[in-house]
């Protein structure tokens, strides 16, 4: 598969939020404002890309050589948790406003199944290092795209006249479902 195909596939066709249904927690949790959504997108992009590269190296350099493939999940989680901790420290210093805006969802990147999902799928697909990086960047861009799209919709929905019983999360979930159907239109593109 060419790098371009991998990129398009991970951003649109197999969008990790809309097609694989991974990373739904931050997708709903921090998508009420454009600013926090963008911040979260950047943080996840950073963590996913770096985590994919590091886990690729660990998988091939250590786990495969020693026949310890069964440690994959726990080692990957260790890598991701450390990276999230690192991002948290850095963000606290660089942008305290963004840090408090993301609140509990920042440490929750640790349990963002998309990050772990991308890392594991990279290994399963048998990608090399460059393909892994491409896929990770694509996946996080796809997540970023989903987050920004839903945040833009939610900002509009905040001021729209929505029946009281649907206001808030219900209408967001309906919108997310419709977006997921829309993204199904990309199937067969690659």
């Amino acid at each position: 598969m060419s790098l371009f195909a991998i990129m398009i596939s991970s951003i649109l066709v197999n969008n990790y939020v809309f097609a694989r249904f991974l990373g739904i927690c931050p997708f709903l949790g921090v998508s009420n404002k454009m600013e926090t959504a963008t911040g979260m997108g950047i943080a996840v992009t950073f963590v996913t890309t770096l985590a994919s590269v590091i886990t690729y190296i660990i998988q091939h350099a250590i786990l495969n050589n020693l026949g310890l493939q069964y440690l994959q999940t726990i080692v990957f989680i260790l890598v991701i948790a450390s990276l999230v901790q690192f991002v948290e420290l850095a963000l606290k210093k660089i942008s305290p406003g963004l840090y408090s805006a993301m609140g509990v969802y920042l440490p929750l990147i640790t349990t963002n199944c998309m990050v772990l999902g991308v890392a594991i799928l990279n290994i399963q697909e048998g990608f090399n290092l460059i393909q892994t990086t491409t896929n990770a960047v694509g996946a996080s861009l796809g997540f970023f795209l989903a987050l920004v799209l839903i945040a833009a919709l939610r900002e509009k929905m905040d001021i729209a006249d929505i029946p009281e019983s649907l206001a808030g999360f219900p209408i967001t979930l309906i919108a997310a479902g419709l977006m997921s159907i829309a993204f199904a239109g990309f199937a067969g593109l690659v």
Partner: peptide, 14 residues
């Protein structure tokens, strides 16, 4: 050793 080593490495870096 692998898990402990990695944990230690990340701990030091953090």
């Amino acid at each position: 050793v692998v898990l402990g080593g990695l944990g230690l490495l990340f701990g030091v870096l953090l």
